[in-house]
């Protein structure tokens, strides 16, 4: 794993306009936005597993989709191998897509129900004119075997409905991998799979990382899985990164109050643990009306006046460990 930055994201923002009724639009001037991603910057190093962790609505999935250019950013820049891919269009974008792929959360929705497995997995090869006919078939069989679907011939002519969730997820992976991408965004790839089967998929991802020299952006709400798979973790809250660092740092030395609360809330499979869930007031604010100052302050037990006025920057406290919190700076 070398230190090259394969992905660099700078001040990325994605605001979704809120649809208003006709009358409301007439009577009010202001436009409301859901600030799904609100100024996010980070880098992913080649060969690592970088995790974006957080609860639902924090913007992690949106960030993932922004990076693979599924949705256009409102502002900010995305660099792939130091090339600016933010504004690429049409043909150039298509070529870039070969190297940036995404795996989705829902194995039941990510495969075309009317395409046979062989067709689904082989289609990317057709799209980019890489292989046809028997050559294509060979590559499809190869990749199916690689993801653990053996014997591969058996799966070629099946339809998705004939397979289980775990198998479908492997096929989705095969489809992403057949183009030999360099970077893969995995958006909650195991949250809809049976618990006892999750590690097979995760271990597969880790094996493939070594074999095919991949880099992953792993998106999850499950910090326990994040701990198992990640090299580095960034915790997101309401569209911003609040803490970022190596796995070691984040899990043994969580500094941001939100991270601490998050970690204390995770169920641990040991009976009668004398653990107290850290008190967190209220609920997550709406992403339309983000509170002024630090967006976490309404729920924070350590909130001060400064916290309510100005938003803290993401600052490096120890080497490689970044926190956006005034308490941590002290």
């Amino acid at each position: 794993m070398n230190g090259d930055r394969i992905i660099r994201v700078e001040h990325l923002k994605k605001y979704f306009p809120v649809e208003k009724g006709f009358l409301e639009r007439l009577l009010t001037r202001t436009r409301n936005y859901v600030k799904a991603v609100d100024d996010v910057s980070f880098s992913v190093l080649k060969g690592e597993v970088f995790t974006l962790a957080g609860e639902s609505g924090c913007g992690k999935s949106t960030t993932g989709k922004l990076i693979v250019r599924l949705i256009p950013p409102t502002s900010g820049k995305i660099y792939f191998n130091e090339t600016d891919i933010t504004k690429l269009q049409k043909e150039q974008l298509r070529i870039t897509r070969r190297r940036l792929q995404i795996i989705f959360q829902d194995p039941y929705a990510s495969l075309n129900p009317r395409m046979k497995i062989g067709q689904s997995v082989g289609h990317p090869l057709e799209i980019h004119g890489i292989a046809k006919g028997s050559e294509k078939r060979k590559k499809v069989l190869e990749i199916l075997e690689r993801v653990g679907l053996v014997p591969p011939e058996q799966f070629m002519n099946l339809y998705p409905y004939q397979l289980s969730g775990g198998q479908r997820q492997r096929i989705a992976m095969a489809r992403s991998l057949i183009l030999r991408p360099e970077f893969i965004v995995a958006d909650e790839p195991v949250s809809m799979i049976d618990v006892s089967l999750r590690t097979t998929i995760i271990d597969l991802m880790l094996d493939l990382r070594k074999e095919l020299e991949l880099t992953y952006l792993f998106i999850t709400h499950d910090l326990a899985i994040a701990k198992y798979i990640s090299d580095r973790v960034a915790v997101m809250y309401l569209g911003k990164i609040v803490e970022m660092g190596s796995k070691q740092e984040i899990f043994t030395n969580p500094t941001h109050p939100y991270t601490q609360a998050l970690l204390s809330a995770i169920p641990v499979p040991t009976p009668e643990r004398k653990k107290k869930t850290l008190e967190l007031k209220g609920e997550v604010s709406s992403a339309i009306n983000i509170p002024p100052g630090c967006r976490f302050n309404p729920r924070c037990s350590y909130s001060t006046d400064k916290c309510k006025k100005t938003e803290p920057e993401l600052i490096e406290t120890t080497k490689g460990h970044f926190v956006a919190c005034y308490k941590a700076e002290a």
Binding site: S164, G166, Q167, V195, S196, L197, R198, T199, T200, I202, D203, L223, A224, I225, K227, Y228, F251, L263, I266, V268, P269, T270
Partner: peptide
């Protein structure tokens, strides 16, 4: 097969099959 956040290095195993 379930990751335990309190354990350091964990080797997880899955149950084979479907």
């Amino acid at each position: 097969s379930i990751p335990n956040i309190e354990l350091e290095e964990q080797k997880l195993t899955a149950i084979g099959g479907s």
